[in-house]
C-alpha cells in the first residue's frame, strides 16, 4: 500500500457497480462522501456519520458495510456495489426492489438504499431466511417512516420471489 500524506490528495480507484472508477481523495475523506460527491453516485445516503443508522450501507466485496465508517483510500481496488447497481435495467426493478414497491416498504425512501444493500446481501447468503432473522439483520438500520412492518414483509416477499426465480432459472 502506498504511503498516504495527510495534507495531499491521492488517486483512488475501485469498481463501482461493475465499472472501474477513480477520483482524488484526501486520506481523511469518508467513503460515503467520495461516492456521493466525487463520483456523483448520490443514491447512497448519509444519515448519522457515526455508524448507527445504516443509511449509508454499501457492499464492499460482497459484504454490507457502513460507507460513513470507511475511508475512500481504504477501498482501493475493491469491488463496491451501491443501490444504483441493484436494478437489472434502468426501467426494470430487481425482485427485492419490486417487493419494496409492492409491499409499501418505503415512505420517504432516504434510509431505503442502505436497507436494500443489507437485505440483498442477506438474501444471497440465506435464501430461506426467516422473519426473525430478517428482523435481527434489519436492526442495524433505522427507519423513521414505516415502523418496519412493511420492510419485513418486503424482505420476505423478495426472498420468496428469489427462490422461485432460481427454481425456474
Amino acid at each position: 500500500m502506498p504511503r498516504l500524506m495527510a495534507a495531499s490528495s491521492h488517486r483512488v480507484s475501485f469498481t463501482l457497480n461493475g465499472r472501474v472508477v477513480s477520483g482524488e481523495a484526501e486520506p481523511r475523506m469518508l467513503l460515503s462522501d467520495f461516492i456521493r460527491h466525487v463520483l456523483g453516485a448520490t443514491g447512497t445516503h448519509v444519515g448519522c456519520e457515526h455508524g448507527v443508522c445504516g443509511a449509508c450501507t454499501v457492499q464492499i466485496d460482497g459484504a454490507p458495510a457502513r460507507s460513513c465508517l470507511a475511508l475512500a483510500v481504504q477501498v482501493e481496488g475493491a469491488d463496491i456495489r451501491t443501490v444504483e447497481g441493484l436494478a437489472p435495467a434502468a426501467d426494470r426493478l430487481s425482485p427485492l426492489q419490486n417487493a419494496f414497491r409492492d409491499n409499501y416498504g418505503l415512505q420517504c425512501g432516504f434510509c431505503t438504499p442502505g436497507i436494500l444493500m443489507s437485505l440483498d446481501a442477506l438474501l444471497d447468503e440465506r435464501p430461506n431466511v426467516s422473519e426473525a432473522e430478517i428482523r435481527e439483520f434489519l436492526s442495524g438500520h433505522l427507519c423513521r417512516c414505516t415502523g418496519y412492518a412493511s420492510i419485513v414483509k418486503s424482505a420476505l416477499a423478495a426472498a420468496r420471489q428469489r427462490r422461485e426465480d432460481r427454481v425456474y432459472a
Binding site: T42, G43, V46, V83, L86, A87, A90, R101, L116
Partner: peptide, 13 residues
C-alpha cells in the same frame, strides 16, 4: 417509488 428504489431520489444534497 421507482426512483427512490433505484437511487435516483432528488434530496437536497
Amino acid at each position: 417509488d421507482a426512483a427512490l428504489l433505484e437511487g435516483r431520489g432528488r434530496f437536497i444534497d
